[in-house]
Design a binder for these strands. Structure first.
Length: 578
RNA sequence: GGGGCUGUAGCUCAGCUGGUUAGAGUGCCGGUCUGUCACACCGGAGGUCGCGGGUUCGAUCCCCGUCAGCCCCGCCA
């Protein structure tokens, strides 16, 4: 392998295959950098050891052509060594070369020449076979492979069985849109690609496979982002007779094993935070805890103030909460306006601003505050304080975004990785528009035992046995203890407004399973691609997936999706609307 | 579904207030060159200015539409 040669290999006769990465023709003397998946090595052609025909052949071979080289590994002359290259001590003195895979001039550069920049992402995706040759993407794929292996090794060692579940499954009316697959045999009927193997893994528990895992491909037909692909990979885990604590302990070990692959260490155990605390203190359920910047409540301090904005917000049932920004008093008017614009785009009417200079607070609100307000609100000299007077439902996302923007401006997010388990999610969430209850996680999530009694009267305050693992503001994975008691499952369906017959039609095979002797069970799923992206230091999921889709869910290399012939549709009992 | 940015040579980009022959770097082709490694030097070829329409004496440039890529909101149990 090209990248592995060292000084100790000098004298070895070798036969090497690889791609011409770059060549330097000095006239009578010629150098090639030969590349394979292991790296680069310099091949030298000199009349002292290479026949004239070999030199001519090497000289005319184009970049990215595949060649076979015969020669001998030799130490380079001392002045010709290259400390920048792992193989820089040596070169292969070629005696023959044969061009076995001539290449046309590459459509996009693989090795970047003088002043050259990376081709646009559109072209990189169209010519993916070339882009994947670049060392950066090659290394990402190798890292990904090692993450697969570490996952399998760790879970195998902990007694988990790898079991595959179907790709052709049943459409689910809830959740994300399904990718549908028409049935040829059954006119007018459809399979769906799985959004996750959720129900199958629960049935595997019912079947007695008490520890299951799968590196599972999942499909969701929703709009994309830099960190969202329509098909993606999860590390899917489920086990019987376990509690949340068991899941935490098991998967902290798994995450440690995965981070070790990238040479990173992680804490022995991860911090915990309840959903309620996360929302109260950070305004979101996946806080970035690399920096402090906590949201605080100033409602009591301003309650008595004769100030219209805060007064009406409080009377309407809202609160006044905000952020103290250390040193923020030096922000320009324009900078603060930008922060306010971010908050407004998240739904609040505006931000109240006050800063502490020379001991006192300024701003329109300040004169309505009691003496000593700055101290009791812990606003320090030089701080800027931004307040949102609104119901939590709008203030939380607004303050969350302002918090992130401030952290990015002040460069606060550079510290050590910060893992945190978010626990005690609510079981239900009420849809603002329709007023209907929906599942926060999914309808099979177990309510907290202590909250079972209030399921019917006070469903919005029922906690779920659900948890997410968050790293630096990104959700790495999430899961729950599932419902294993069919009576509890019925009550949850009923709270969700799913009738007995609906439930039977949609999830009948799971309900039958629960009635036939179901162990208590639960699990978790991790976003494999996101973990790979983080560990690779990549900016986009597309850089850790061999053949990704564009933001419009197209595959540019193969041209999918594409139209099909009417005859093919007819066989599937389908007609295009166009 | 909505908003923003981008589209000019194989690749990366520049192109002034709308004006004669659309430029640069790199790659490619030809030549010189015996220790280069982003080799160096000399010469050359290479353009549907994404596509369609409009305004104008005249459009790469202004307007409308459309396609594609990227980013964001909605969406993603």
């Amino acid at each position: 392998m090209c990248g592995g040669f060292r000084a100790a290999d000098a004298g070895t006769r070798v036969r090497l295959g690889g791609w011409i990465h770059r060549s330097r023709d000095l006239g009578g003397l010629l150098f090639l950098d030969l590349r394979d998946r292991s790296g680069l090595v310099q091949i030298s052609f000199d009349p002292r050891w290479a026949a004239p025909e070999a030199i001519a052949s090497a000289s005319s071979a184009g970049a990215e052509s595949v060649v076979l080289i015969e020669g001998e590994v030799a130490l380079r002359p001392p002045e010709g060594r290259n400390p920048e290259m792992p193989t820089g001590e040596v070169e292969v003195r070629a005696t023959s070369i044969s061009v076995v895979g001539p290449a046309e001039t590459p459509a996009i550069p693989v090795s970047l020449g003088k002043g050259e920049k990376l081709a646009s992402e559109e072209l990189r995706l169209r010519y993916r076979h070339l882009d994947l040759r670049r060392p950066e993407l090659r290394d990402n794929m190798i890292l990904r492979h090692e993450l697969y292996q570490a996952t399998r090794r760790y879970l195998d060692e902990h007694g988990f069985l790898e079991i595959e579940t179907p790709i052709l499954t049943k459409p689910t009316p809830e959740g994300a849109r399904d990718y549908l697959v028409p049935s040829r045999v059954h006119k007018g009927e459809f399979y769906a690609l799985p959004q996750s193997p959720q129900i199958y893994k629960q049935l595997l528990m019912v079947a007695g496979f008490d520890r299951y895992f799968q590196i599972a491909r999942c499909f969701r037909d929703e709009d994309l982002r830099a960190d969202r692909q329509p098909e993606f990979t999860q590390i899917d885990i489920e086990a019987s007779f376990i509690e949340p604590e068991d899941v935490y302990r098991l998967t902290e070990g798994l995450i440690a094993a995965l981070f070790r692959v990238a040479g990173l260490s992680v804490p022995e155990t991860f911090n915990r935070m309840t959903y309620a605390d996360a929302m109260e203190t950070y305004g979101c359920d996946r806080p970035d805890l690399r920096y402090d910047l906590k949201i605080f409540d100033a409602t009591e301090m301003v309650r008595a103030a004769e100030f219209g904005i805060t007064r009406s917000a409080i009377e309407a049932g809202g609160r006044v909460r905000g952020l103290r920004i250390p040193g923020g008093a030096s922000f320009s008017r324009k900078q603060v306006d930008e922060l306010e614009a971010i908050a407004k785009s998240a739904g609040v009417a505006g931000l109240l601003r006050t800063k502490r200079l020379s001991g006192a607070l300024d701003g329109p609100l300040a004169k309505h505050l009691p003496a000593g307000a700055a101290d009791s609100l812990a606003i320090a000299e030089g701080d800027l304080c931004l307040l949102a007077a609104a119901p939590d439902a709008t203030a939380n996302p607004a303050l969350d975004r302002v918090r992130q923007e401030v952290a990015s401006r002040l460069g606060l997010a550079g510290g050590a990785n910060s893992f945190v388990w978010i626990t005690d999610f609510p079981l239900f969430i009420r849809d603002g528009a329709s007023g209907a209850l929906g599942s926060v996680h999914h309808p099979f999530t177990s309510p907290h035992r202590d909250d079972l009694a209030r399921m019917e009267q006070d469903p919005e305050n029922v906690r779920a046995l659900a948890y997410d693992l968050v790293l630096n503001g990104t959700e790495l994975g999430g899961g729950s203890i599932r419902i294993s008691d069919p009576r509890v499952q019925s009550r949850v369906f009923s709270a969700l407004g799913i009738s007995e017959s609906d439930a039977q039609e949609r999830f009948g095979f799971l309900l039958e399973g629960l009635r036939s002797g179901a162990p208590p069970h639960g699990g978790i799923a991790f976003g494999f691609d996101r973990i790979a992206m983080m560990l690779a230091g990549a900016q986009s999921l597309r850089d850790v997936i061999a053949f990704p889709k564009t933001t419009a869910a197209r595959a540019l290399f193969e041209g999918a999706p594409s139209a099909v012939a009417d005859a093919d549709l007819a066989e599937l009992h389908i007609r295009s609307a166009n």
